[in-house]
Design a protein around this nucleic acid. Structure first.
Lengths: 107, 107
DNA sequence: AATTTGCGTAAGTGATTGCTTACATGTAAA
DNA sequence: TTTACATGTAAGCAATCACTTACGCAAATT
């Protein structure tokens, strides 16, 4: 039972669930109505999201409202941001090489 | 064979591979030396990363150099950034409610 | 020419995933 | 209090995953 954020958001359905409740908490049935899969399937996705801390559940009578707890997404954000310079090619392999050569010249 | 970026970076070994070559391209064996799993296992990870466009392979004699092509990570960055306000609680469910009430007052 | 090196890939395997149906429980409504 | 509703969860299943060993092939070395 590996339960880390990267794996949690790997599933498109779970990303959609997050998107659904991010700005408007919903109960489980309301969430399930937005998908083609069965309610228990959604229930299991919610469980995973809960276990890795991406959502929290608040009981209200017989309903369970799912609220976003997206702080964990910061881990993903940080991991990705490390590479922004690379993909924006402000710092690619060639730059790296040129910098190395420059440093060697200065020695 | 679902091959999207979110699923590609869900595996910790693949994230480590990306990290290894992000700033310094390496050939496959050199990459594999950094892990406990077998070389073919790494080769398969590389294949997945290649198929979803996160790395590119350049043949050099009998060696294959893996270079980063991290533009695809922007998809992840954008998806995550949508929720930054939520997890930084500058815009949580309560704010949302309060804003709604305010808007209703203005009508 | 023979051997070593770097790598891809097939086949097999156990674990995990995402889904289903079926059932159980607690709460609200009639 | 009987019935309907909201949900959790178990069991089963096909597909996928991450890994291994075994093999093949082309490029480099000897």
């Amino acid at each position: 039972m590996r339960r880390d954020v990267f794996q949690a958001i790997a599933d498109p359905t779970r990303r959609d669930i997050i998107n659904l409740i991010a700005f408007k908490p919903m109960n489980l049935n309301a969430i399930a109505d937005n998908f083609d899969v069965s309610r228990p399937a959604i229930s299991q996705h919610i469980k995973i999201l809960t276990e890795c801390g991406l959502i929290a559940i608040k009981k209200q009578g017989r309903e369970r409202y799912c609220e976003p707890r997206l702080k964990q997404l910061n881990e993903v954000a940080q991991w990705v941001e490390r590479y922004r310079k690379v993909w924006e090619e402000k710092f690619d392999a060639l730059d790296n090489l040129l910098e190395e050569l420059k440093n060697n010249d200065n020695q």
